[in-house]
Computed example of a mutant assay.
Amino acid sequence: MRPIIGITSYVVPATWGVWHDLPTALIPNDYVAAVEQAGGRAVIIPPDGRDPDVLRVLDGLLLAGGPDVEPVRYGAEPEPLTETRADRDAGEFPLVRRALELDLPILGVCRGMQVLAVAAGGTLHQHLPDVLGHERHRPAPGIYGEHEARFEGGSMIAKLMGDDVGVHCYHHQGVADPGTLTVTGRAEDGLAEAVEDPDRRFVLGVQWHPEVVRDRRLFGALVEAAS
């Protein structure tokens, strides 16, 4: 059997056919395709804050990108440009904490990396242009930023990425303090681009969007760890 990889998702109004603005559990199909092309079986997980019991039938967990994490979860007040979804936080944080207890393989993408960091006791920058002085990590609505990342020698992400270090990013927040995780990659401006937990078999967060290019290196590593 293919390893079953759960992908966290949104519930947002969506329109198709004759149906308009129906509350819909969805996720960009790039995530599903990336998991399937890497040999996994993708299962979409709608937000559910009641319990993390779904993990009992999963072999791995993919924390997808999305809205900002609620600042209260890392002891901060929300800033004007912070946009949160309480339902996703309520559903994802119990999943992450239980998955870490079970040593279930986890890949966090963009928001997913930030969720990992906050779950590990870390904090976030709420608006990167205020910290970095530029908007290259989210240059325009719907436009990915492109840059190169630097990875720590010997780290999991360095071994996976090799010499191809170009990444596609779209975010206005970032990890300020990774908590108990280890920062293993940074952008040219010093922002954390990758975090890992070397004490677990596979816990990796990346600030960019590898699903956009169906990056078999990262999704293949998740599927392999879940096998």
Rank of each mutant, 00 (worst) to 15 (best):
R138S: 07
R2Q: 07
P129A: 10
G65H: 02
Q207H: 09
P198H: 12
H137A: 12
W208L: 11
Q37M: 11
R98T: 13
T123D: 14
M113D: 10
P28M: 12
R56A: 15
V167R: 02
H168G: 00
T184A: 09
G60W: 06
V12Y: 14
A76E: 02
V11H: 02
R150H: 15
H172W: 00
R186F: 04
A117Y: 10
G108F: 13
H20E: 14
L222S: 14
H20S: 08
P52I: 03
R217F: 01
C169S: 15
E188G: 09
A14F: 09
L95I: 00
G220L: 04
D103R: 08
S155Q: 04
G65C: 06
R138E: 00
H20I: 07
Q126E: 04
A192L: 05
D53M: 13
G121R: 10
W16R: 15
D53T: 12
R200S: 14
G185R: 03
H209C: 05
P3Q: 07
R41W: 04
A149M: 07
L63Q: 00
T24M: 08
P3H: 08
A140N: 14
R50V: 14
V43G: 09
F151R: 11
E188L: 03
L61Y: 01
I157Q: 05
R201K: 14
V223A: 02
I143F: 09
P139F: 09
